[in-house]
């Protein structure tokens, strides 16, 4: 039983990671794709945070009578990665806003269709 509970976090990580990747691949809506990417990234954050926990470990603040501490380094690393994740998401959202302004749609299939017709139009124009 303890074995299963001990791996609970890792199970969640795998579940979230697969969910995130699946959304990125399966959805054609740009915003949903970005949500998928975020879920995927968050799963990796949880993975790192789980790495840092040591069974019976205390928070890494020096106190008397405590000699087992959790490892603070993965947490610090993940702080950096969270900042990176926020930056990526915001750049992605900004791009979606501009895509919506330029194409009038946030659906990838629509955009591909518009681009295809656009190509045809450009070719016609260059010959005349």
């Amino acid at each position: 039983m303890n074995e299963i509970l001990g791996h609970f976090n890792y199970g969640i990580v795998i579940l979230l990671m697969m969910m995130g990747l699946y959304i990125v691949i399966a959805s054609s809506n740009l915003i949903k794709k970005l949500i998928g990417i975020s879920v995927f990234q968050v799963s990796v954050f949880i993975l790192y945070i789980t790495f840092g926990k040591i069974t019976g470990g205390n928070p890494p603040i020096i106190v008397d009578n405590v000699d087992v501490y959790s490892n603070p380094l993965p947490h610090v690393l993940i702080l950096t990665a969270i900042v990176v994740g926020v930056a990526t998401t915001s750049v992605g959202l900004a791009l979606i806003v501009r895509i919506r302004e330029a194409y009038g749609s946030t659906d990838e299939d629509d955009i591909n269709d518009i681009d295809k017709n656009d190509n045809f139009y450009l070719k016609n124009r260059s010959t005349t």
């Binding site: 995927f40 990234q41 791009l95 955009i111």
Partner: peptide, 27 residues
């Protein structure tokens, strides 16, 4: 060209997956 926006978005999705994979590997 407005297709630059879509190209950039696609690169963002692919690039972020790539970078996150690197993060997992380093972990």
């Amino acid at each position: 060209d407005r297709r630059a926006l879509h190209a950039s978005y696609q690169y963002l999705i692919m690039g972020t997956i790539g970078a996150t994979f690197i993060l997992i590997g380093i972990g």
